[in-house]
Design a protein around this nucleic acid. Structure first.
Length: 470
RNA sequence: GCCGCCAUCGUCUAGGGGACUAGGACGCCGCCCUCUCACGGCGGUAACACGGGUUCGAAUCCCGUUGGCGGUACCA
């Protein structure tokens, strides 16, 4: 199979585009064929180099790589003009002065379901001549046959008056030139397909194509936002970059995207890249639009985070903080040897990379104690127990998880309190919050000196606070 | 308006005439585990849009209605 992903660089790559790219990629890999990346930049006003770079970057991050390209559609201008000239000369296309208002007036005169037919004015925009009779059938691999009666189709504008080509023309010629065998794209292109098929047909009749026939088409169900409407750049769509900023793993994103509109058939939801390649088929792609569910993606991401070796998680966190949370990079750099351990003890408690610092950042930098947490856990009884813990930990030797646990357990037994009554005050004192990784691990990772210092300070400030409060 | 696509739990889906008192996953709720938060385990909540056919039998096939979405650009 020869497939192509053809984004228009009019914005960042969003999840709908990413899914399309992924499906094409999976098919190319499974078939041993090729994936072509073609940038559809014929819209000169809205296309930009920055957008192209963003798209390339997003694909790199997702590890969706291509075999040919990236090609710029605008670079094929000469070829497009040549094909256009041939169509014009043969009469398959014509120049027409009709405006949008003229088209509307035509419809009012002839009935709304009657396709617009222009007059050959010898100047103006270039329209493709759609045959009066017959129909064009799109043999869609996902939807089956869809019939478009020619009578209903307008003669589409395929190039502006200045000869610059439009999407429906350029894409058809390019698919032919690139010898694309399968066009896999969003369903929003389904109604465009007969126009493209007509262009291809005309081009092939004029000997402009190669040996190959038109590509096979597969139109994917659209991705909808929470509002149930098509997801697009302008419509509350998460861009790939946003997912990255949220601390999602590319492999989790790919896994989730694969599941949006496709299922393996059994009940498996966690699928590696290799499994996806092996199992993905167009036949199993759903016809229903799918809604993007951020909660499920996060859940899946948590699975992937927990499956990572701690060292790998540490490396990902390092990179993530460097680019997405640069405000913490310095603190992190001060204790490079701590990251691996911090990652290990946080791993089962975080769902995204972004959640790491709020949970375990206290290991790297001291932070203020949350007032609510202090009020709740550093009350008189809490401080009493914190004092005991302070004494015990001062002499705890070695200062490791095992010994810390034993030392604290002794206090719990002696004072006849619930574990939480002792652990929470300690947690608040060292982490500044009522939530942290396991308390023994946290203490050990922090080290005796820092732990004792923070506990002592917490004791003092909370005592002062208590005195102030009366 | 017109052309087209779609229609199973809140969401993603399994289902392709009897195996369906409709399965799984996320979410939500409850219980267990438990030093917090999570993780994990167990249980629960919840759907075949509606109406006609076809058939001994329909979530599954056909038609219609309704609804949603897309297209209808000298955007892609």
């Amino acid at each position: 199979m020869r497939l192509r992903f053809a984004p228009s660089p009019t914005g960042a790559l969003h999840i709908g585009g990413a899914r399309t790219a992924l499906y094409n990629f999976l098919l190319a890999r499974a078939s041993g064929g090729a994936l072509i990346l073609r940038i559809e930049d014929t819209d000169r006003e809205r296309s930009s180099a920055e957008n192209i770079e963003q798209i390339l970057d997003a694909l790199r991050w997702l590890e969706i790589d291509y075999d040919e390209g990236p090609f710029l559609q605008s670079a094929r201008e000469q070829r497009h003009r040549q094909a256009l000239a041939a169509l014009l000369e043969s009469g398959r296309a014509y120049r027409c002065l009709a405006t949008a208002a003229d088209v509307k007036a035509f419809k009012e005169r002839h009935g709304a379901q009657r396709g617009f037919r222009g007059r050959d004015d010898g100047e103006g925009a270039i329209r493709l001549r759609v045959p009066e009779q017959g129909e064009t059938v799109v043999h869609d691999l996902i939807r089956g046959d869809t019939v478009f009666a020619h009578a209903h189709l307008d003669d589409p504008v395929i190039a502006r008056a200045d000869g610059s080509v439009l999407y429906n023309f350029a894409v058809a010629i390019d698919d032919l030139d690139d010898r694309v065998s399968h066009v896999v794209r969003g369903e929003d292109h389904l109604s465009n397909t007969p126009k493209q098929l007509l262009v291809i047909e005309a081009a092939r009749e004029l000997g402009l194509g190669g040996e190959d026939g038109p590509p096979a088409y597969a139109h994917l169900p659209l991705l909808h936002g929470p509002d149930g409407r098509k997801l697009s750049k302008r419509h509350g769509a998460a861009s790939v970059q946003e997912l990255r900023t949220e601390g999602l793993l590319p492999e989790a994103v790919c896994n989730y995207l694969a599941l949006l509109g496709w299922g393996a058939g059994d009940d498996q939801t966690v699928l590696s890249r290799e499994q996806l390649i092996a199992r993905f088929t167009l036949e199993r792609v759903s016809r229903n639009p799918a809604r993007f569910d951020a909660a499920k993606l996060r859940w899946l991401n948590g699975i992937y985070i927990r499956a990572l070796p701690a060292a790998e998680l540490a490396a990902r966190l390092q990179a993530f903080i460097a680019t997405e949370q640069p405000e913490h990079a310095q603190a992190l750099a001060r204790h490079p040897q701590l990251l691996h351990r911090a990652a290990a003890i946080s791993q089962e408690k975080i769902q995204t990379l972004a959640e790491f610092w709020p949970l375990a950042g206290f290991l790297f930098e001291r932070r203020e104690i949350d007032a609510q947490a202090a009020a709740r856990h550093l009350d008189r009884a809490g401080r009493e127990l914190l004092m005991r813990a302070y004494e015990a930990l001062r002499t705890c030797e070695p200062f490791d998880e095992r010994q810390i646990e034993l030392a604290l357990a002794a206090i719990i037994a002696r004072e006849r309190v619930k574990p939480g009554a002792l652990y929470q005050p300690i947690r608040v004192a060292i982490a500044g919050r009522a939530v942290s990784p396991g308390i023994f691990e946290s203490l050990a990772a922090l080290g005796r000196e820092q732990a004792l210092e923070r506990m002592k300070d917490a004791l003092q400030t909370s005592a002062q606070q208590l005195a102030l409060d009366g």
